[in-house]
Design a binder for these strands. Structure first.
Lengths: 211, 211
DNA sequence: TAGATTGTTAATCGATTAACAATC
DNA sequence: TAGATTGTTAATCGATTAACAATC
C-alpha cells in the first residue's frame, strides 16, 4: 500500500512503549502526555511524538494520549493478535525454557510444535506439546502452514535445518544460535538473541564505568 | 586516562568481530583485509576500519589484519579475561538454564553463587554451585567482593533485591527482568535481555516483510 | 477563551560511507 | 619498486532534538 518506510530504530522502541502503557493502564491511569511518558521511560517527548506519528495521529492536542487506546494501536501495529504459526527447533535446556516461559500467544505467535533430533527425548511434553522427531519437521510445516521458527540448536546443526525450514516456507526466525541466517537468506525476517554478545558488552561497560 | 569516548554502537559490534575472528582462526586463516571481513560479516570495510581505529592501529598497510592478534586485541578491549565476580539472582527455569549454558569464564565473568528465595530449591546444585537462600546475598557479596549480578527474577521481586545489590556495591547487571534498573541507578552498567521485546519486533518484521 | 499539548517542519547531532594520502 | 590496504579526514546520510503553528 505504499506506506512509508519505518526505520528499525523506531520499531525496536514500540514493544517498550507497549509494555509501559500496559503498566500505566494496570495502574489505573487513563491519559498521559508525551512529556510525562518521556520522563518515565527516559526518552525525549519529541522522540515519542515522532515515533507515534510514523503510524498516525493517536493523540489529541491539549490533552495527550489515551493510554488504553494508544496501547491497543501499538499492539495492532506490532501484530500481537496475529497468532503466527510457530515451531521450535531444539528442545534442550534453552529450548524447553523458552517454550515454557515465553508468552507467545500474547506476542503475536502460536507455538504449534517442538522438535529435536535426539530420539531419547522425543515424546516428552513441553508446555503441553510433545517433542517430535526432527524428521517430522518438513511434513509438519507443510500440513500446518508454519510461518516462524525458533532456533534453539547449536551453530553446527543450524545450517542444514535452516535450509530445510526456508524451503518449507518459513519466513521468520527467532534465532538463539550464532548461525547468520540473513547472509544466505537476506529476505527472511530474523531476530537474533546473542547472549554472549550481550554479556561481553556488559563486561566492557563495567570495566569502563568510570570513564 | 582521558581516553576518547567510544560510542555504544561501536562497542556492540566488538563481540561480533571477536566471534567472527575466532571462527576464521579456527578455520586456519592467518590474515584478512577489512574488505574481506566486511563481506563475510555484512558490514562495510570503512566501518570496520573506523571501529578498530577507535582503539588503535591494529592493521598493516598493504597486508590487512593478523586474525589471531586482532582477536586477542579485541578480547583485551572487551575484558574477556577479567573474571568479574558474579552472582545469579533467581534459580528458576531461566536462571538454571543461563547458569549452566553460558560460558561466563570465557566472556569476562566468574560465576560464584546462585541465589533463590524459594527455600524448597535451596541446596540444589546448578552447574556445580549450590543454590543459596536469598537471605545470604548481602553477606556473600561483602565477603566475596561481588561486582556483577544476573537478574533472573520477575519484575515484582526485582526492585527490593536491586536496591540491596546496589547497596552491596554491585556495579553491573545482566538483566533478564523488565525492571528498569537505570531509572533509579543511572551510574551502574546494565545490559537488558528483553525476550518479549525481541519477539514482538520479529512479529512486526514478519507481517511487514513484503513492504 | 486560555492553557495545554499535539503534529510537523527545521536544526542539530552523530554515525556511516567515501575518498585518498600514507606506507607496508 | 608496484600493488595493496590501512589510517584518517571529509562528505553524506539518518536519527534525534528543538521549535512552533495548529487545535483540542
Amino acid at each position: 500500500m505504499g506506506s512509508k518506510y519505518i526505520s528499525i530504530s523506531v520499531i525496536k522502541r514500540l514493544p517498550r512503549y507497549y509494555r509501559f502503557l500496559g503498566m500505566l493502564k494496570n495502574a489505573g491511569m487513563v491519559r498521559i502526555s508525551s512529556r510525562e511518558l518521556a520522563e518515565r521511560m527516559g526518552l525525549s517527548a519529541s522522540q515519542i511524538r515522532q515515533d507515534l506519528n510514523c503510524f498516525g495521529g493517536f493523540g489529541q492536542q491539549g490533552y495527550g494520549y489515551n493510554i488504553e487506546s494508544l496501547q491497543a494501536e501499538i499492539g495492532k501495529i506490532l501484530g500481537v493478535d496475529k497468532g503466527l504459526k510457530t515451531i521450535m527447533i531444539g528442545a534442550g535446556n534453552l529450548g524447553k525454557t523458552i517454550a515454557s516461559q515465553i508468552d507467545f500467544a500474547n506476542r503475536g505467535f502460536e507455538l504449534l510444535g517442538v522438535f529435536d533430533k535426539n530420539e531419547a527425548i522425543v515424546g516428552q511434553i513441553v508446555n503441553g506439546l510433545p517433542i517430535r522427531p526432527a524428521s517430522d519437521i518438513e511434513d509438519f510445516c507443510k500440513e500446518n502452514g508454519v510461518e516462524v521458527a525458533v532456533i534453539c540448536i547449536p551453530y553446527e546443526e543450524a545450517k542444514s535445518v535452516i535450509d530445510l525450514l526456508v524451503d518449507c516456507g518459513i519466513k521468520g526466525f527467532w534465532n538463539f544460535s550464532h548461525y547468520n541466517i540473513n547472509e544466505k537468506y537476506p529476505r527472511v525476517a530474523v531476530e537474533n538473541v546473542h547472549f554472549n554478545d550481550s554479556l561481553m558488552t556488559l563486561c566492557y561497560q563495567v570495566i569502563n564505568l568510570d570513564k
